[in-house]
Design a protein around this nucleic acid. Structure first.
Length: 282
DNA sequence: TCCCAGGTAACAT
DNA sequence: ATGTTACATGGG
């Protein structure tokens, strides 16, 4: 394990890992524990120093936390109104992270219409049942299972992970794993496609609709204009930008694209965290 | 008992 | 093209 001391500005580790974009990081004491690129990573922040213990190279860590994103520029673009300015002030330093596309895709397929607690447990079960054990110091973690491992298992074994929609969802995951492991669906290649083209390809997969596609594009394929709309975002957007009218998701996506532009995904993440923390009467 | 949860696909207008 | 419903389940 190497020790990295990385100077950071406009970066907040807690907001970044708590805002809802990742499911597997955990905070123990003042330290966060996660698994990135199949290795354990320990991270903590003190003011403008991010301390990371990991086998990863410094560039890989910087890339994962998107330290090259120009946050002043992002804030200039999305800080369009009072609500956005408040969210930015409150969560200043929240950054998107660059997740592994395969893990991200399966995680969000599992997420549908389920409470976050449930999603976390499903993903933990997948990792524990089908991933590899990795130890570092006194921590035991699991890698996220590779596509060929999922593709090679059975519906019944998959089903024991506790999916929200039982075997229906297990079938979708098995089908996607077979496509990916057989090189009939290349997730990495989608990074080179335009946002809309990549989204269309993702939505050809059974089990992937607008919301999951946008999450994968935003969280793992560098498409910062993606604006995932779930129940929370729908409620917030209707309330704040459509005078409580029950507008369609298409209308909301249209507004997001025109209003927030190429950093709509950052706007979404700040608003999502805000809504989950303070909105909806909670 | 009813409502809700980081939705999607199939079906009905 | 847009609106509605089954799916499946633990917690408030």
């Amino acid at each position: 394990m190497k020790l990295h001391q990385i100077p950071v500005q406009i970066f907040n580790l807690d907001h970044t890992l708590r805002c809802g974009q990742v499911f597997r990081w955990q905070k123990k004491g003042d330290e966060w524990i996660g698994v990135v690129k199949n290795s354990v990573i320990l991270a903590k922040q003190e003011d403008e120093i991010l301390t990371v213990k990991s086998d990863l190279a410094a560039e890989e860590i910087a890339s994962y936390f998107r330290l090259d994103d120009d946050m002043e520029k992002v804030y200039g673009q999305i800080g369009k109104d009072k609500l956005m300015k408040e969210a930015i002030a409150r969560y200043r330093g929240l950054r998107l992270v660059s997740q592994d596309p395969w893990e991200c895709l399966i995680s969000y397929v599992c997420s549908r219409n389920a409470p976050i607690k449930k999603i976390k447990s499903v993903i933990f079960n997948l990792s524990k049942n089908f991933g590899n054990v990795i130890k570092s110091d006194d921590h035991i973690e699991y890698t996220f299972p590779e596509p060929d491992v999922i593709a090679g298992t059975t519906l019944d074994k998959l089903g024991m992970c506790g999916f929200r929609y039982g075997k229906k969802q297990a079938r979708e995951i098995l089908e996607i794993a077979k496509l990916v492991s057989g090189n009939n669906f290349d997730l990495e290649r989608l990074k080179k496609h335009s946002y809309l083209d990549a989204k269309e390809e993702l939505m050809n997969l059974r089990g992937v609709g607008h919301k999951v596609a946008d999450c994968v594009l935003l969280f793992s394929l560098d498409k910062l204009e993606a604006f995932p709309i779930d129940v929370h975002m729908r409620r917030l957007m209707r309330r704040e930008y459509f005078q409580d009218k029950n507008v369609s998701d298409d209308k909301i996506r249209e507004l997001a694209r025109e209003y927030f532009g190429k950093y709509a995904g950052y706007a979404q993440e700040y608003l999502f965290y805000h809504e989950r923390s303070y909105g909806g009467g909670k």
